[in-house]
């Protein structure tokens, strides 16, 4: 085990050092009260702008975000089953009721609404005010959400987790971490928002050459099933690096599952290989757990 962590550490260090070289936006400048302060942020403004631009098409199930809509068929049950296990004959329509869930980088709210339909008390945050506005407007359309609309806030995870530490039963970051500049700050902020014993769910593409070829070159530039320039290969994170970051922040990674997307039929499936995409489930350890 020690050997493993050591390898992770080495890998992470070398990765982190190399990424410092070409990723300057990890430190952004913000002006506060007439004095210039350097404030750390996870926001990469260029990525936020890219996603805001296509706000109009966000909720068209056959539009540019087609893959995110069908993605719900896989990730919603993943989150549900990670949080609750119900016997088949005792299932309810709202298995996630009484669960407070934070959807980080909620975008137009495709995932937030789907989880809210399962009864969860969902908070969605995103750095783009256009998308937050879109999400807030759209959730009023579904009659099934009348009593349980998600609440949306335009903020960052580092700010939000300052105001709501140890607050959520689960924090979800689906297809977000690959758009984030400072991964270390991002992960520690995610963990801060979760209650001890709560769950973290992260889905993201893997940083492998096959993913670069199929996920970026083919999917964005040739098939155009994903908007061009959605992803930046260098910002992808591998399961090992993510595991290392989470475990450094007092979390136990419980499962990593590979996923595969088939664009022609617009279908997602679980896969035994994490070469392309993966979903990770972790638990924030309680103080007793960490003492053991």
């Amino acid at each position: 085990m020690k050997n493993h962590s050591l390898t992770y550490l080495k890998m992470f260090l070398s990765r982190n050092l190399s990424s410092q070289g070409y990723k300057c936006p990890s430190r952004a400048f913000a002006t506060l009260n007439n004095k210039t302060a350097i404030k750390e942020t996870t926001i990469d403004q260029s990525h936020v702008d890219k996603h805001s631009k296509i706000a109009k098409e966000w909720w068209d199930p056959n539009g540019k975000m087609i893959a995110l809509h069908s993605y719900n068929l896989l990730r919603v049950p993943y989150i549900r089953d990670g949080l609750v296990i119900e016997e088949p004959f005792k299932r309810t329509l709202t298995p996630l009721s009484n669960k407070k869930i934070l959807d980080v980088g909620c975008g137009g709210g495709i995932l937030s609404e789907a989880i809210a339909r399962l009864g969860a008390n969902v908070t969605g945050i995103d750095a783009s005010s256009e998308l937050i506005e879109l999400a807030s407007d759209h959730c009023k359309l579904d009659p099934k959400l009348v009593d349980n609309r998600p609440s949306y806030h335009c903020t960052t995870i580092e700010e939000h987790s300052q105001s709501f530490p140890d607050h959520y039963d689960a924090v979800v970051a689906s297809e977000v971490i690959e758009h984030v500049a400072n991964k270390e700050l991002f992960v520690s902020s995610l963990v801060r928002a979760v209650k001890p014993g709560g769950k973290l769910f992260v889905t993201t593409p893997n940083r492998t050459r096959p993913m670069q070829i199929l996920g970026i070159c083919v999917a964005e530039h040739i098939l155009r099933v994903v908007p061009v320039n959605t992803h930046d290969y260098e910002m992808f994170i591998t399961p090992n690096e993510l595991t290392f970051l989470l475990e450094k922040n007092n979390c136990h990674v419980q499962a990593i599952h590979g996923m595969m997307y088939y664009p022609v039929v617009n279908r997602w499936t679980w896969s035994s290989s994490t070469t392309f995409m993966y979903a990770l489930q972790a638990e924030k350890l309680t103080d007793e757990d960490s003492n053991v």
Binding site: P77, A114, R117
Partner: peptide, 12 residues
């Protein structure tokens, strides 16, 4: 489908 929060008329 219902358990996943979908409508019964969902194509999936």
């Amino acid at each position: 489908a219902l358990y996943a929060g979908l409508d019964i008329t969902h194509p999936s």
